[in-house]
Write a protein that binds this DNA or RNA. Sequence first.
DNA 1: CATATATGATGAATATCACTCAGTCATTAA
DNA 2: TTAATGACTGAGTGATATTCATCATATATG
Lengths: 262, 262
Amino acid sequence: MKREPKRAMPRAKSAEKNARSAKAGTRKPSLAPTRRERVQSKEDAIIAAAHKSLTTRGFAKTTMSEIARKAGVAEGTLYLYFSNKNALARAVLAVFYKRLTQTAKTGVAKCATTREKLEFLARHHLESIIGERRLLELIASDVRNTDAYEGSDVYKMNREYVAVFDDVMRGGVWRGEIEDGAAQWIKRDIFFGSLEYSMRTLLMKKRSSKKDVAAVVAELVKLLMGGAGVRTEPMSNRDLTKAVERVDAAALRLERLSAVKM
Amino acid sequence: MKREPKRAMPRAKSAEKNARSAKAGTRKPSLAPTRRERVQSKEDAIIAAAHKSLTTRGFAKTTMSEIARKAGVAEGTLYLYFSNKNALARAVLAVFYKRLTQTAKTGVAKCATTREKLEFLARHHLESIIGERRLLELIASDVRNTDAYEGSDVYKMNREYVAVFDDVMRGGVWRGEIEDGAAQWIKRDIFFGSLEYSMRTLLMKKRSSKKDVAAVVAELVKLLMGGAGVRTEPMSNRDLTKAVERVDAAALRLERLSAVKM
DNA sequence: CATATATGATGAATATCACTCAGTCATTAA
DNA sequence: TTAATGACTGAGTGATATTCATCATATATG
């Protein structure tokens, strides 16, 4: 847990140039993978192997040789693709976030109301992190503190992920379904913080039932929606305020009226 | 990060027998420390050294030899007192929790209302964990997962600590200051989860001002108190509803009145 | 007081890692 | 065919947690 290398990774750079051989006039399309494809699939294999080890045994107990064995490469090869164990773990996390964001987006899109969207997001998040709880350890500890976290892939992916929540909340406020209370970052922290802490509690319970998950989700959404449980569709703050103003004005007129008459 | 030893710690057992020499008739009280006192003070020195290293450099970068040097003992000696690095870290955490519980209890006792108690607890927790953020890493990762966490000192101390919050909440509900909503464990998770997540956000902000801490605390307490914030801020849905009812009733009376008069 | 025994303490030795690097192999270019 | 480039390898290195044979001191016992 120290020596951070400086050497740039000789690893295959990102996308582009999927075109095989442009001059494929006479030759068959050649089913053999190109060098670039082979490199890519090897990188995928390494990440998959690391993912498996990390999620089942945790960061500390996962060894590089174990990953190498699972991925079918030599130990040294790992360092051609990732500069160190932390970087590899970050790559795994980035994949996790990418998938999480994808499923979150499509799920939210299917929901009609803000309440439904929030409920879906909460349950989705909670169930996902329960499944891959070991990955979350990474975020809290090493991976987040050593070398550059901001600017890393995980950081960017994480931003994209929480943006899904932000959009839902802002949409809800805009449509008057949620009262516009605290700053957005506070709501975000309450949302994700509560869920991640609940995860620990749920994991410690001997039999954490579906009901427990549902209870956490319901309570959290209730709080974020403005606490006005009232079931069904609570009036928005905006609407209530307008109603008060109307009633108040009416009362005032009546008072003046009766004052005249009296 | 593996070999967990089985050998029982030959470490000095807990309290009792502070009495030096009971037959202190003729002899002076003997200022020389007893064996037990020497052992105790050495244990304290080790924990203090470990605390310093852990909080400044984090778990991974803290080495046992570093701790031994700081504590003024040989490396092997550490293992007479703590079975391994994890156990030592847990001991440090236990001390942290003990102090935290102490200050929390006395602080809460000084507050009059439930709201004040909650606000104090939230601010106290947030400021404490910001100060010793490195210790919290431990909880999320290794220390909590390896070997027996339940039944450990940290676990018990943690239970005691969160009990302070539980008491405040239950007291508030009992006195009608808080609506009795979700299960207690859910409220607890929301409280501590939000704060610990906020900590990360605050630490990433370049200049996390007092105002940010205050904002998080205020919002969280507002939510837990049932939204009945009343706070300067916009009225809660619940209060607005009540206000509408009051105004509505008044208007009704006036209408009847003017109807009679008319 | 002298000796025996238990309790503490030590640090060199061991086992595991993460990480490096000199060299091999394979594919493409000339 | 040969040269050059890129990909890969695994024995080697240094760091670190943990063990253990041994020593030191204090207490108990005669």
